[in-house]
Amino acid sequence: MGSQRLPLQFCVVVLLLLGKIDMFGQSVLLKTGQKVESQGLRRDGDLIMAKVQVGTGSGEVGYHVAQIAKIEFPEPAAMKTANDSLGRGDAEKALGEINSVLGYYDQFKDVPGSWWAQAALVKVSALAAMQRQPEAEVIAKEIQKSVTDPEIARAAQLRLVGALIRRNDFDKAVAICDDAIKNSKDETTLANAWTAKGDALLAQKNADDALMAYLHVPVFYYEEKQFMPTALLGSARAYRRLDDVDHAKKTLNELIASFPQSAEAAAAQTELKKL
C-alpha cells in the first residue's frame, strides 16, 4: 500500500486505518506545493503514512520522505518543560521529559520539520549536566550527522567541547567555541559557546581569560538559565586561581542559592569548604 503500490497521482485513498498513529494534527507540505492535513502520522520504511479523512471515514496515504518539503509538527509541550527543568538544574527530570519526545520523533529524524534535533540537543544537555559525558557525546555526533541547520550543527559541536578538553585538545575546543561566537545569532548557542570557552581556558590555567568568558553568561545571557550553574562554578574557580577568595565565595554562594538542585551546586558546597 502507499506510493510503492500506486503511482503518486493515485495516492489519495489507499486503505483503511491500520497500525498505530501516535499524534494528530500535522500538516504535510509536499514539494509540489500540495498541503495534506493529517490526523496522525507513522513511519513505514521510507514512507510517511498520513491518516487522512476520506468522506465519513478515514484512510492512510503514504508519501516518500523525498517528496516531503516539510511536516508542520506542533511544538511538543515537553520541550518547554524539559528546558525549564534544565534551567532549574533538575537534569534528571528534564531527561525523563525529553525522552518521551525523542521516543516519538526518532522515527522522523530525517524529515524536515521534525523536532528530533532540538529534542536531542536537550537530551545532550541533560546528560552532560548529569556527568554522563560519553552518552552525551554519542548523541551530539548523531545530531551533527543528521541536521542541515547550521545553528543546530553548531550547538551539537559545542556539546563535544568537553571531550576535547579532557583530551587536552584545547586549540580545537577553543576554535569550535570561537566559530560559534562569531557566527551564531542564537542566544542559547552563544551562552553555551562562552561557557565552553571558559572551560577550555580554565583547563589551560588561563584564569583571567576564562573568567571573562564565563562572565559573558551572567552579564549578557542571564536568561539562559541552563548555562548559569556552569558559568558560576567556572567563574568561582577562576576567581580562586586569581587568589580572589572573596569573590570566589560570593559566586559559590550565589550558585548554591540560585540553583540548589544542580550538580554544580553540590560541587560548590565542596569547594566552599576548601576556601
Binding site: 573568567l211 571573562m212 562572565l215 559573558h216 551572567p218 552579564v219
Partner: peptide, 20 residues
C-alpha cells in the same frame, strides 16, 4: 550597564561590558 556593575563592585563584569 558597565557603570552599574562598577558601582556594585562587580569590576570584572564592568570591564567585560566596557570591552564589548
Amino acid at each position: 550597564l558597565a557603570r552599574c556593575f562598577y558601582e556594585v563592585d562587580k569590576k570584572w563584569e564592568s570591564a567585560l561590558v566596557y570591552q564589548e
